[in-house]
Write a protein that binds this DNA or RNA. Sequence first.
DNA 1: CGCTCTTTGGACTTGCCGGTCCATTTTTGC
DNA 2: GCAAAAATGGACCGGCAAGTCCAAAGAGCG
Lengths: 201, 201
Amino acid sequence: MTRALTRKGEATRARVVAGAAAEIRERGVDEVRLEDVMARTGTSKGQLFHYFPDGKEELLLAVAQHEADQVLIDQEPMLSNLTSWPAWLAWRDRLIERYLAQGVRCPLNGLLGQAGRRGPGAQAVVTGLMSRWQNAIAEGIRHMQSTGDIAPEVDADRAAAALLAGIQGGVLLLLTTGRIDHLEAVLDLAIDFLRAGARTA
Amino acid sequence: MTRALTRKGEATRARVVAGAAAEIRERGVDEVRLEDVMARTGTSKGQLFHYFPDGKEELLLAVAQHEADQVLIDQEPMLSNLTSWPAWLAWRDRLIERYLAQGVRCPLNGLLGQAGRRGPGAQAVVTGLMSRWQNAIAEGIRHMQSTGDIAPEVDADRAAAALLAGIQGGVLLLLTTGRIDHLEAVLDLAIDFLRAGARTA
DNA sequence: CGCTCTTTGGACTTGCCGGTCCATTTTTGC
DNA sequence: GCAAAAATGGACCGGCAAGTCCAAAGAGCG
């Protein structure tokens, strides 16, 4: 299945993926021409099709996977350690900081809305990301329940689903309006809600 | 500014916008060719550029505006009458019903993520929609506060911002994963949260 | 050292699709 | 009815960008 790649080959392939990712961040998915990627990464058309035989689609998919991984990595170590209220707030801050810095440049942007249409591969990448993300949040909620900081009758999976949706919407609104307000409001209210759950219990 | 349009002309223009909207819903924004629109609406290239001198971009913008209006219309009369808890639940049901029926076919889809890149016109359409939407929600919250159903110390605008983000994210996740869970969870938790606010007061 | 497989360069092909143009028909207003 | 303006049809152009192909340079290995 996997092609034989020398070390040099691997390096080139990685350079192409990184370059394409950067290009997409700057100009948007559908504005990126193979030629742009070639220019930025100092490669030729022959190379592109050598490493990505299925052409643009395959390259885009590789970029998507690469960026999807990055999204979760950027939230570490906070996301995997939602074990106290200060930890939750630290995670919140990291998210806001990250997306504020990123601004309008969302590499997954083009994928998100059109994942279904861009073939099953893209769909899988996105659902995989969302699933892992939601899982991590749910895990955090469960941990807080085990310490009594969140009421046991809160449905961890359902709350995580809602919070994830809020985050996605907040980012989407940041992308379109340029304002971070929505993301902030969602995170603050969600955390308030989880906290209140302990009292209500 | 506005071109002289006979009744017939207006009808044709409207037919084109509607046809283009349908085409976009079925195939996605960047899969739609002018030719497809012509075929579906029984028009010629001459007509397209007669009614939309700036070509595809202008047509797309008209479609976007048309669909953006529809989004709010589809939520009436519930959205403008969030004056009791049953009314809120009715609105919730309407939203879920609507998006469940729509499924993966979101006409604004392509716009949302790339509004900024598609020129200031598209940006304005989207921000206008979001602003009106959020406003209607905030108005509902304020009304509930005036009747004592929601605690006065809830920040209506902030809560509306969060809820709007949740909805957007829920729809986005529906689009990518095909599951309505997130949207449901967001709406339920948000309404619970607003209700709890009365008690906590 | 020489064989083979990988890597690289870049010219060329190809199809697509937005946009232009003008000729023809229909409508409008007087 | 009869000009002027609007509506319609469709041939044609031009550019762009993905993908093909092959020739040549380089690397690994006995």
